[in-house]
Amino acid sequence: MQITWETFKRCIEEFQDLSNELNDTWIIHKPETEENFTTYLTKKQFITPKNFEEESSIPVEYHVMYSISYGTPILCLNSWRNDGTLLTMEELWKCLNFTEDEDMYSTLTQMDHPILQRPFLTLHPCRTGEILENMFKDSRNIIVSWLSLVGPIVKLDVDLNYMKLT
């Protein structure tokens, strides 16, 4: 299942409106010119990994954007130490309690951010269309439904109040 750019944009705008009502920290980024495929959401939060010795809590920045190639939402994230250096992919896997195996490189992998053109870890969108079709085809806001499923995998808190959009 694919979604259109227009559907994606409508869903993230509804999400942002509710985020403002909830005093949540999601921010929508829109270019000054109405270029297609460049509007996206971000959220920063701290996580406290149990198995990462260097820091007690680390900042994580999440980005939700549209994949032109797959016609689905994608979730990118980055995390860094207090000195500003980025965590490696393997370090972030450890913070997220992932076990390194062959499938990890095709699930959470490093790719260039489609808009910012710099390295981010990305939940690979190759199976997202299938997930949307099987689980959320009747959702009124597919972004909320999808984030409620994939967010916990990468320790992204999605307030339950967003479910009223679905």
Rank of each mutant, 00 (worst) to 15 (best):
E130D: 10
P152W: 08
W80G: 03
F46Q: 14
K43E: 10
S56E: 13
T38Q: 12
Q110D: 14
M135N: 09
Q2H: 05
S19C: 10
D157I: 15
W80L: 07
D83G: 07
K164H: 07
V60A: 03
V60Q: 01
E61V: 13
T88Y: 00
I143Y: 00
Y105T: 15
T39V: 13
S69T: 15
E102G: 13
L149S: 04
L121R: 03
L41K: 05
Q2E: 10
E35Q: 15
T33Y: 04
I28D: 01
K94W: 01
F8D: 02
I27P: 00
I12Y: 02
Y70Q: 06
P114A: 12
E133Q: 12
E102N: 10
I131L: 13
N36M: 09
F136P: 01
Q110A: 15
E133H: 09
V150S: 04
C95G: 04
L165E: 10
P114G: 11
E13A: 09
D83Q: 09
L92Q: 00
R118V: 12
D83I: 08
H63I: 14
M89E: 15
N161C: 06
L121V: 13
C95H: 01
L18A: 08
G71M: 07
N82K: 11
L147Y: 07
N23P: 00
L123Q: 08
F8Y: 15
S56K: 11
M104Y: 06
E55P: 02
I153L: 08
C126E: 11
F46K: 15
K44I: 15
Y70S: 05
Y66T: 03
K30Q: 08
E34F: 08
Y162V: 07
P31H: 06
G84R: 01
F37W: 12
L147K: 04
L77R: 00
E54T: 13
T99I: 13
P152R: 04
L22E: 00
D159R: 05
C95V: 07
D103M: 13
E13I: 11
